[in-house]
Simulated scan of single mutants.
Amino acid sequence: MVSMVWPTFVFPPPSSVFVTAMSVISFTGLAYTGISEVRGKHLQYSKFWQYNSGESRSQIHVSGRRGMQIIYTPAFLAGLTSLVFFPQYHDIRYLLVSSALTIHFLKRLLEVQFVHKYSGGMALDSAVPISLSYFMSTATMIYAQHLTITQGLLEPPIDLKFPGILLFLLGISGNFYHHYLLSTMRSSSSSQSHSKSNDDKDYKIPRGGLFELVVCPHYLFEIIGFIGVSCISQTLYAFSFTVGTVFYLIGRSYATRRWYLSKFKHFPHSVKALIPYLL
């Protein structure tokens, strides 16, 4: 059944061993990382790792802001480069995909600089591979879109570009709003404990927006945004990356909820991890 429906939504796979391999690598890598989050093995830039790691002092660290800049800048430059140096002005789908990815990572960089609050540093040997992963995923998604043009692949019978644009805008807006709510909560806690050291990690239970229903609404909207990009793209790689991202963010959301339950005795058990009332 899936094999019959799938071709109506997705471009035929391009003749590219690289894109095919990256589709498998992106999906399995992200899914495995999500499972690792559930098992308690966290990437070394999260509050979970900062609280629990006993080996952090032996590693090279940068500030949280600098670490996030390292993570997001190469992917942003990949998107920007695709628009400036390799414009496919005759193909609206290519322009939309490249623009969406560029806007996505520009938003992240602006949030890093002006929105997010930081309570610790980041291990450099974690920032670099994460940065490389974002860069490779962004470049591959754009390259896969480029191949649909150069190889003359037939458009899918069902065009999802415009629903994809709406989903992308919803996702990026909802993600920003809940990041903003997190930043106001953290700035509030920081002002109340201004006399504490810079290493203070005074966390609160998030409130407002969908935080009343789920622990990680910013992840939920990030998923919606990537589903939007996949619908704009309609390539196998884009959907593979998005499905892998879903698995990763489910695992990370689950770990976040478990962390809040361990830190706050009165954390409401009715608040789910990612999807209101369900998950």
Rank of each mutant, 00 (worst) to 15 (best):
V243Q: 05
R257I: 01
H116W: 02
S173I: 03
K201Y: 13
S46I: 03
Q151H: 14
T81H: 12
V115P: 01
L109G: 06
L213N: 12
D125N: 14
L43I: 15
D202T: 15
S253T: 04
L249A: 04
N175T: 08
F267V: 01
A127I: 03
Q44Y: 12
T184S: 09
K204C: 10
S240K: 03
I158F: 10
S15Q: 13
G244R: 00
T73G: 08
P12Y: 04
V5H: 03
L43C: 09
A123F: 02
T33L: 13
Y72R: 07
S233C: 11
S197Y: 10
Y254V: 13
R93S: 04
T8P: 00
V214C: 05
M141K: 07
V128G: 01
A31D: 09
S187P: 01
P74K: 07
G64Y: 04
S173E: 07
I227F: 13
V214G: 00
T150M: 08
G54E: 07
T150F: 02
Q88C: 04
M122N: 00
K196M: 14
A255M: 12
S15T: 11
F27W: 11
P217L: 02
S53V: 02
Q50K: 12
S262V: 08
Y32C: 06
L124A: 03
I71G: 01
V5M: 12
S188W: 04
T102P: 03
G79Q: 06
W259C: 00
S53A: 14
V229H: 05
H146W: 10
F162H: 13
S183M: 08
P74G: 03
S197I: 09
I224Q: 00
A31L: 13
H42Q: 14
Q145C: 09
S63E: 08
F221W: 13
Q234C: 07
I227P: 00
P276V: 06
T150H: 05
T33P: 00
I223G: 00
L249V: 09
R108G: 00
P217F: 00
N52F: 07
G34F: 05
K204D: 12
G120I: 06
E55W: 06
F168Q: 04
L101Y: 03
L160F: 11
I130T: 12
C216F: 02
L83M: 06
S82P: 05
L43F: 05
A31G: 08
R57G: 09
F162C: 10
K272N: 13
V5I: 15
P156D: 01
S190A: 15
F239V: 15
A255C: 13
Y118W: 13
Q50D: 11
I25M: 09
R57K: 11
G171T: 02
R257Y: 07
Q50R: 13
I158A: 10
F264G: 03
H146E: 03
S63G: 13
P276M: 04
P87W: 04
S53I: 03
W6R: 14
Q59G: 01
Q113P: 02
V19I: 14
F135A: 06
S133V: 15
P268L: 09
V84H: 09
S26V: 12
G64E: 07
K107Y: 07
A100C: 12
T81N: 11
S58N: 14
S58I: 08
T235H: 01
K41H: 14
L170N: 13
P276K: 10
V128K: 02
S58W: 08
H269L: 14
Y277H: 14
I172Q: 06
